[in-house]
Amino acid sequence: MLRIHFGELDSENYIYNPDAFFDNTYEDDWMMDPVTVDMVRDIDGSEVKGPRLIDSPFLGPIPTERLSGGVKTLILMKHDPDHVFNASACGDNCAGWILKLGRESDLLIRLGYLMDFGNDPFEIEIDNLGVVVHDKRELYETVLENELL
């Protein structure tokens, strides 16, 4: 299940800056995983040509390190279960992927803003409260009423 910690998180395995963390920790085989290829195509509109080469329609051929912070964070969520990542590096366009990753395995992330998870029902546990919410309205009301942000 997807668990979200809202606001500040004080934990030894918490990564505040997933962008820099990715650059210094990613493995070549992560990049050739079909899920990674799909995420890069969907979020950045780019094609993974190899573990260290991306073809961007805007920037031309770029190294993996110049992917967007959002897609780097998604790749870390998928491939590095040992850390909790700051999902504020992800925009609303990453929300569908975060829900998908959370359906496929247990995933804890940190958020500092109210991400738009869309209008379909979902199951998200709010880590600060241990409460499970089922849609966007319930999520927003629970976060705001409990002053988590």
Binding site: D19, I43, D44, L59, G70, V71, A89, G91, N93
Partner: peptide
């Protein structure tokens, strides 16, 4: 400045 990922903020 906010917005979606890959909109060019970091660039």
């Amino acid at each position: 400045i906010q917005g979606n990922s890959a909109s060019g903020k970091t660039e």
